[in-house]
Design a protein around this nucleic acid. Sequence first.
DNA 1: TTGTGTTAGATTGTCGGACAATATTGTGGG
DNA 2: CCCACAATATTGTCCGACAATCTAACACAA
Lengths: 221, 221
Amino acid sequence: MSSTGKLANIVERIETRIDTARLVSGQRLIEADLTREFGISRSLLREAFRQLAAEGAIELVPNRGAVVRRLSRNEALELFEIRTELEGMAARRAAGRMHEPAVRHSFETATQCLFSEAQTSGAQEYIAENEAFHRAIFIAAGNDTLSDLARKMRLPLIMSQLSGALTAGILATSLEEHRSITLAILSGNAAQAEAATREHLVRATQFVSGVPESLFRSCPD
Amino acid sequence: MSSTGKLANIVERIETRIDTARLVSGQRLIEADLTREFGISRSLLREAFRQLAAEGAIELVPNRGAVVRRLSRNEALELFEIRTELEGMAARRAAGRMHEPAVRHSFETATQCLFSEAQTSGAQEYIAENEAFHRAIFIAAGNDTLSDLARKMRLPLIMSQLSGALTAGILATSLEEHRSITLAILSGNAAQAEAATREHLVRATQFVSGVPESLFRSCPD
DNA sequence: TTGTGTTAGATTGTCGGACAATATTGTGGG
DNA sequence: CCCACAATATTGTCCGACAATCTAACACAA
């Protein structure tokens, strides 16, 4: 657990609501409501808002307060292009660390559900598993700063925003790619792991290109 | 100019002081001093602190307030490894955009001082020029999200923290590498631009490895 | 002298209320 | 139905308060 302070707690709670789509993209966060609900002061909530905004979870519009972040198509594409690099790097490094038992073990544990019988049912469940999978790669890469950076890219947020365009076929393809990546990493083949990961991300980028305009925010003000 | 609010202004002013080493790594920021100096309330200052912390400029230690961020060696190395990827990507993309007149022109303008007679004198001046150069690459890459990310890596901050280990030789080598990168980008040779940039970053990483322990923070708490 | 416990002061964490500025909503007239 | 305008809701910023915690000075014993 990071900071044990009250504020960190609030930040986490709001973050969780966003990542689990209990708060959806574009939704407005009214100070009065949240202070009442959490039983905290406006000062504290506003500090939490600042932090959440700097971390990319919400957006602060002058004189209009906080809204759950909603990406434009261009922002989403930029984000996925960056992820392609960072996650390629992470997969490469992760593969190179699979000979360390502790690293290997925790990666195996985190990915074993990919090979279980249980089918992923809904979009919401997929989003959570997807996030867990990608996080596992970053953790296995052993660069904490990188993990932090990846977290700030808000994968669950954007997937939730685009969830209306997720089809069963896409989920199946994604799952298959996750398996390939996992096998490449576990085999210790860094080049293959990086290549598979980049392919996966390129496909995700193409997916974003095809999502109907209505799911995005119009102007990136 | 981004947000026109009062808070954004305060954030910028503190940021500038850090980037120009008027506030140095590890230095403590006392709320009472800054509220008096800026003529603002504690609420506002504390919101600014939150944002600066989330952006990596300062660190908030529970019950001890804000200090200008001071990296451990490991954090610095992690940061440079990430930069190697992101800046390689940026250089590649920048090279691919040099045929667009506007992009080319602004990149040429930003880099022309690299080829002027004027020698960089002190470390402080080098740090500023170094930041400007690297930012120019990210801007030329045409991915705003990426530029933002790069900014949050706080190059001036870390260079300032390590400035005690900068020698004339290092500055000269760096300048030479900057020139090579610039030429590769201007030539539109993406592969070469990326390679040269990665080499430059790898050398920077090696530099970090050799810096005496005293310039780093001990435990990354 | 040096180490140590204590106490006073400095600083932060959080709260509550206040008020102007701005945004949103509701209402009546055209 | 659309527009102007008043009423309300919400945010931006300030102030002062208080307990919790940290820091520094100081006295005292070894």
